[in-house]
Design a protein around this nucleic acid. Sequence first.
DNA 1: CGGGGGTTCGAACGTCCGTTCGGTGCGCAA
DNA 2: TTGCGCACCGAACGGACGTTCGAACCCCCG
Lengths: 223, 223
Amino acid sequence: MGQAAPVSTNHQEKLERLLELSAEIFADKGYHNTSIRDIARASGVSLAGLYYYFRSKEELLFRIQERLLRTVLDDLRRRLDDVHDPRERLRIFVHSHLRVFAQRRPAMKVLVHEYDSLTGEHREHIRALRHEYMETCLGILRDVRRFCGSGDAVVLRVAAFALFGMMNWTYTWYRPEQDVSVERLAEQLYRLFLGGFLRSGDAGRHLDRCAEPLGPGDAPWRS
Amino acid sequence: MGQAAPVSTNHQEKLERLLELSAEIFADKGYHNTSIRDIARASGVSLAGLYYYFRSKEELLFRIQERLLRTVLDDLRRRLDDVHDPRERLRIFVHSHLRVFAQRRPAMKVLVHEYDSLTGEHREHIRALRHEYMETCLGILRDVRRFCGSGDAVVLRVAAFALFGMMNWTYTWYRPEQDVSVERLAEQLYRLFLGGFLRSGDAGRHLDRCAEPLGPGDAPWRS
DNA sequence: CGGGGGTTCGAACGTCCGTTCGGTGCGCAA
DNA sequence: TTGCGCACCGAACGGACGTTCGAACCCCCG
């Protein structure tokens, strides 16, 4: 969790360093299990000194989430610009999401894990940004369905949440250092989802020639 | 969150009622943000009285998670018994998981959301049960791949976590009362996953005839 | 050299936390 | 009737929590 950094004159830099550091601690211990004193200790700033940068502990949590969410939205919008092919747009969506999430692991864990910890206006603000992101995703999926002709056996909303689930769940298991690279991960999840999304209308048709194990003797499902 | 229940003579019944009630509160407020006093108030049992049933707050959390995990594992084993077809086994896996999760929503949120809150032996114990469940899932996916011939472009581990992500993420959005039924949800997620899993080896092949929107004027992705 | 604003701090406030202690009442066996 | 163990409770302990207050520091403008 690191020691106090050498110097950073600019106010904004100090603030962002505190956000980054706090995100690490929140991700590690959980928001409600982290005390302002923990953050003070890790940052080298005094307890009272922190309150010069944040009005409250919850505002600190809010700023972490808002910052990452804006990054995600900006990155996505920039990369989607002037791309028209629906599949490619979906591919970009998945890659963008996972790239940012891998680059900012602590903040992303806080974003997906500590949304419930927000209250009142903070929560409402984040909810609105999340909603915007979700709408973008739904728009892309609608285009894929319309122009690439997937069936409509799967409710779009369910498909979108399934995709978010696949991507966001990575915070529980994916470690960029010891797993496949982010690009390969993103490509695999993209293909996994797209294949199912496009084929979901006629599921079972291409499965007819599925072989079958011989019997209990050969059974590989008994642990 | 409910009032104190009328009566329940048996010790085991009282204990399970406390587990169920605590799960609701933990799910609602989060483990670290819930006090034993909250549980005492909601259950009608005195603060000290709770410690007759549990050695500590963490043991309470542990029992909730262990109980649900054993239910999930038992339900799955029972339903997989004497089913050999790999696709059908996968289908049963998804349905079983989501059915139990929908039946016990509070406990399932606690299970997926508060694993990090466990420490020491409690955590290790739950980790082992989770591992067992994951191995069962991997076994099923291995069979599907072997006998139904999906490619191996997607690492099995990634596919398994993607599936878990799709299913577990439901706790953030799925409400059985106002969404599609659990059976339909399970069927959709099953098809979504299986389609992608079987087709992941040759992604793109069946996408060649994908149409394309006309241009920025028609662009549906601009919100 | 004087002073004012941006920045940081030590110390304290009031509250709530998990847990423990010493009991009390009750039902049942002897 | 006595005694014992199960089920439960009121009250308290020591500590940690988020937040605030008033003062100090330091740099730049005059």
